[in-house]
């Protein structure tokens, strides 16, 4: 455990040693405010909830999380420090989890810094804070899902730009899997169970059900499994691509 702890602390201090962390947080906060008030009609709706705020999270994460995850392993491979890290008494799993946790905590920090909007809605009305809390958890879990996918893609290349673009594409597919656009398209030729399966891997479906305030075990399991599977895939990819 102390190994993972050391790795997490190093990674986190790495974020804040460069402007990356500050740029990310500032852009995250500006975008979330802009979406909520301009596109989400926060005031005009006249309702005391944070739906307009959380509705845009999947779309914000689509671009912002690959920007965090792209460096996870691609940079390590580019500078060669992966060779140093993986010859220290550290298992591959510890390294993968340490890096993932650090990035996830960082996303959590950015998310926590949106607290003024929570204060605002409580000042203006009397929202259901349970639903808001559940939405924050759901948003963070969804962020973890995006991150795990990004971690796996990042392990496959030494170019951060390539990792960024491929992560966006993959995450986009995961996001839209439950959308009518995709489902109408696949339902024509595929058996119903497969269509259901495709619909059920959609991030939006699971995030929306959590952010209604219904914390269903199946939604938590979905994100948990997704993170687990993609972190496992990360270890496989690193092992495979070590030599080049």
């Amino acid at each position: 455990m102390s190994v993972v702890n050391t790795l997490v602390r190093r990674e986190l201090s790495g974020y804040f040693a460069t402007p990356v962390a500050y740029v990310f947080i500032v852009i995250f906060l500006i975008l979330s405010a802009a979406f909520t008030f301009q596109l989400g009609y926060f005031y005009e709706r006249g309702q005391a909830d944070l739906k307009p705020f959380f509705d845009f999270h999947p779309w914000m994460y689509l671009f912002l999380i690959p920007a965090v995850s792209m460096r996870l392993w691609a940079e390590e491979r580019h500078t060669g420090s992966i060779e140093l890290l993986l010859t220290l008494p550290v298992t591959l799993w510890q390294a993968v989890i340490g890096k993932f946790l650090a990035a996830w905590l960082f996303i959590g920090m950015a998310l926590a810094l949106t607290f003024p909007i929570w204060i605002t809605v409580n000042y203006l009305g009397d929202p259901d804070n349970g639903v808001i809390f559940a939405s924050y958890i759901g948003s963070w879990l969804m962020g973890g899902g995006f991150l795990a996918i990004g971690s796996c893609v990042s392990a496959a290349t030494r170019s951060q730009v390539v990792a960024f673009i491929i992560s966006i594409c993959l995450c986009f597919v995961m996001l839209l899997a439950g959308h009518r656009l995709v489902l109408d398209f696949v339902s024509a030729g595929l058996p119903q169970w497969l269509v259901d399966a495709i619909a059920s891997i959609s991030f939006i479906t699971h995030f929306e059900s959590i952010s209604k305030g219904v914390v269903d075990f199946r939604d938590l399991l979905f994100f948990g499994l997704l993170i687990g599977v993609f972190l496992y895939a990360t270890t496989v990819v690193i092992e495979m691509k070590k030599a080049d």
């Binding site: 201090s13 060669g80 140093l84």
Partner: peptide
Amino acid sequence: PEGAPAYGEMTTSAFLRFVGELR
């Protein structure tokens, strides 16, 4: 390793401390 890779954004002392802790 070849080329003496390290974590560039870390200071020398933080880097040595990091490696020491992992060891």
